[in-house]
Amino acid sequence: MYDAFYNLKKKPFQLNPDPEFFYNSAVHKRALAYLRYGLAQGEGFVVVTGEPGTGKTMLVKELFGTLRNENTVAGLMVTSQVGAEDTLRIIAATFGLSYDGDAKAVLLKNLEEFFKLKAREGKRVLLVVDEAQNLPVQSLEELRMLLNFELEGRSIFQVFLLGQDELRSTVQGSKMEQVRQRITAMYHLRPLESEETKEYIVHRLTTAGWAHDPEFTKEAFEEVYRHTAGVPRIINTLCDRLLLYGYLEELHVLDLEAVRLVIKEMEQDTVRVKPPSRQELTNVETPMYPIDSEGAVPIAGSLEERVVQLENLVLALRKTVQKERALLRKAILLQLDMDEAYSEPVDEV
């Protein structure tokens, strides 16, 4: 769609974390350094927290990309509210071990044997827990106990915890003293600053093949930062809609007015609990704008009066075009939602 219009090789602001678009801002560079330091330590917990959308999952994917040539067996676990024993089962499944119906003692024995096997092969086992703020205290305790497994006096298992601000509150609780003692590094991701937001947008556009079309004005960058507060996920959502708007309006310069209009449209969008059915879509009435069927508009009076009438007519036509384009944008977004809601799962080949 807009990627072809602007000669982009791919969509620059997709929401799915793509390591190709990783932006090494000052805060993300430091967080990545903490992760690598913790990895070099080879033991304990490494904790990274941040608001939703600040790039924690992207950090993990970037880290995993650097582990390909290292002797590390890494597993990614996305948590939900599960009990301690279920947590062990999820960990076992993450590393391809038996888990269905096994008792806790069997799960622990299998995990310990797996960790020791990899250690004898000269490899380390790393578990990355995403959305770790969902872990109950008992599950954190189970992870701490797994850290006690050793081979010849050295640690053979390590855990990275990535989560929202609630995770910091959890580990600082009165019952978490033993967990805190096993934390080797801890870092909190903050949103991007104003200049970093501009650099982030330019970085993603450039990665997608951008040749300065469309051009962003200084005021447009500033308004994006003002609305998003520097949160990457929100920046992606706004800029994706902004490029769609630019495509439909055939714009090659995106300015303050364009950003504000898109923000207004996004704020007016109602949140749907569920996507509308196909029957509901077919019953939607499309607003019609009256046009003189004869194709002629009576204009009379003096020259000045006729000029005013023509200006009013042009203004009315512009408003009609703007309304129809706004409807077209909403229709495209609605269709994208419908395609996602009704798409059938496809087996991976």
Results as ranks from 00 to 15, higher is better:
Y2G: 11
D3R: 08
K9T: 14
L15N: 04
P19H: 01
K29M: 05
A33L: 12
Y37S: 11
Y37H: 09
Q41T: 12
G44Y: 06
F45W: 01
P52C: 06
K56I: 03
L63C: 12
T72P: 00
V78C: 06
T79A: 14
A84S: 15
E85M: 08
T87H: 01
I91Y: 03
T94L: 04
L97C: 07
L108N: 07
N110H: 07
F114P: 02
F114V: 10
A119W: 10
K123Q: 07
L127F: 05
V129G: 00
D130Y: 04
L135S: 09
L143E: 10
L143G: 05
L143V: 10
R144F: 04
F149G: 00
G153W: 05
V159Q: 00
F160K: 00
F160Y: 08
F160S: 04
L167I: 11
T170I: 14
V171D: 07
I183Y: 00
H188Q: 15
E195A: 14
E195Q: 15
E199K: 05
Y200L: 09
G209E: 12
A211E: 13
A211I: 01
A211L: 13
H227G: 02
P232V: 13
T237E: 10
E257F: 09
A258T: 11
I263G: 03
M266W: 03
E267Q: 08
V271G: 02
V273Y: 10
Q279P: 06
T286G: 00
Y289C: 06
Y289K: 08
G295F: 08
A296T: 15
I299T: 13
L310T: 11
N312A: 12
L313C: 05
R318L: 10
A331T: 15
D337A: 15
D339Q: 14
E348L: 15
